[in-house]
C-alpha cells in the first residue's frame, strides 16, 4: 500500500517536473533562437506546435529507450484519443462552443487524419521501422513548413512591417535551456518508472498504463491551453492545439524513437486503439461540419461519451 502511494506521488511530482521543464526549455530555446536571428514566425509556430507535446514525446522516447515500448506507443495513441474525445469534448461542453477557421480546420484536420492513417499503415508492417521513422519525420517537417507559411501570410496581411526584437544570448538562457532538457529527461524517466512499477504491482498491463494514466497526465498542458483558450474565445488556438499536438505525437513521438529501434506493434493497438483514434478524428470533423463549422456543447457531450465508452471497453472488456 505504502509502495503504491509512493509511486503515485512520484507519478504526480514527475508529471509536474516534466511539464514545467518542457515549458522552461521551450521558453528559453525560443529566446536563443531569436537571438540567433531565426524569424519570430518560425519560432512561434514551432514553439506552440511542440510546446504542449514535449511531455508525450519525452515519455514515449524514454519508455522506448528503456525497453517499455508498449508504454511509449500507448502514451501516444492514448493521448491522441484523449486530446480529441476528452479535451475537446470537455472544452466544448464547458465553453459552450469552439469555433473554427474553415481553412485551418481543413488543413489541420486532414493532416491529423492523414497522420493517423500513416501510423496504421506502418503498424500493418508488424513493426515500426527506421524507414517508417524517416517518412514520419519528413512528413512532420513538411507540416511545420505548411504552418509557417500560413502564419507568415496571416502576419503579412495584419502587420507587414512587424520586425523581431533581437536580444543577446545570455548564460542564463543557455543554463535554463539545459536545465529544462535535463528536467524533462529526469522527469520522464521517473514518470515511466512509476508507471511501469504501478502497472506491475496493480497487475495492469503496461499498455493500459500508457493509454490512460500517462496519456492523460502528459496531456495536461493541452487540457489547460485548450480549455482556457476556448473560454477566452480564442477558438483557433483551442482546436489548433489539439490537432497540432496529435500530429506531433505520432510523427515525432513515435517517429523519433523508431529512428533508434524498431517499435513492435501490439495486436490490440492495431485492431482497436488505432482505429478508435481514427474514428474520433472523423467524428470531431463531422460534428464540426454539422455544427456549421463549430463544435458545440452537444458535440462536446458526444465526444466525452465516446471516450467513456472507449475507456470502459478497453479497460474492462478487452484488457
Amino acid at each position: 500500500m505504502l509502495e503504491i502511494a509512493g509511486l503515485l506521488l512520484a507519478l504526480i511530482l514527475s508529471l509536474i517536473i516534466v511539464i514545467k521543464s518542457s515549458d522552461l526549455f521551450v521558453d528559453n530555446i525560443v529566446e536563443i533562437g531569436a537571438a540567433l536571428g531565426i524569424s519570430q514566425i518560425i519560432l512561434g509556430v514551432t514553439a506552440s506546435a511542440i510546446g504542449t507535446s514535449l511531455p508525450e514525446f519525452g515519455s514515449a522516447m524514454i519508455a522506448s529507450l528503456s525497453g517499455s515500448t508498449e508504454i511509449g506507443v500507448g502514451t501516444v495513441i492514448g493521448s491522441n484519443i484523449w486530446n480529441i474525445a476528452g479535451i475537446l469534448g470537455i472544452s466544448a461542453t464547458v465553453a459552450g462552443v469552439i469555433g473554427t477557421n474553415p481553412k485551418g480546420i481543413t488543413r489541420d484536420g486532414m493532416v491529423t487524419l492523414g497522420t493517423g492513417l500513416i501510423l496504421i499503415f506502418f503498424m500493418l508492417w508488424g513493426e515500426i521501422t527506421r524507414i517508417a521513422s524517416i517518412v514520419m519525420i519528413l512528413f512532420y517537417l513538411f507540416y511545420l513548413w505548411l504552418l509557417i507559411k500560413a502564419q507568415k501570410e496571416y502576419q503579412d496581411s495584419k502587420s507587414p512591417d512587424k520586425g523581431f526584437k533581437k536580444k543577446p544570448i545570455t548564460k542564463k538562457r543557455i543554463g535554463f535551456s539545459i536545465l529544462g532538457i535535463a528536467g524533462l529527461i529526469v522527469g520522464c524517466r521517473i514518470l515511466v518508472f512509476a508507471g511501469v512499477e504501478l502497472a506491475r504491482i496493480a497487475g495492469i498491463p503496461e499498455m493500459i498504463m500508457g493509454l490512460f494514466t500517462l496519456a492523460i497526465g502528459t496531456s495536461i498542458p493541452e487540457l489547460v491551453v485548450t480549455l482556457s483558450s476556448a473560454m477566452k474565445g480564442l477558438h483557433e488556438l483551442s482546436i489548433g492545439t489539439v490537432l497540432g499536438s496529435n500530429t506531433f505525437n505520432i510523427l515525432i513521438g513515435i517517429g523519433v524513437p523508431a529512428l533508434f529501434m524498431n517499435i513492435p506493434v501490439d495486436p490490440l493497438s492495431l485492431s482497436f486503439d488505432a482505429p478508435v483514434m481514427i474514428l474520433v478524428i472523423v467524428l470531431v470533423l463531422l460534428l464540426i461540419k454539422k455544427g456549421g463549422m463549430k463544435l458545440n456543447r452537444v458535440g462536446g457531450i458526444i465526444l466525452i461519451s465516446t471516450y467513456v465508452v472507449y475507456a470502459v471497453s478497453r479497460i474492462y472488456l478487452l484488457a
Partner: peptide, 11 residues
C-alpha cells in the same frame, strides 16, 4: 497552472 509561458504570451 501549468499553462506554457509562450502560450500565455500568445493568448
Amino acid at each position: 497552472f501549468l499553462t506554457p509561458k509562450k502560450v500565455k504570451e500568445m493568448m
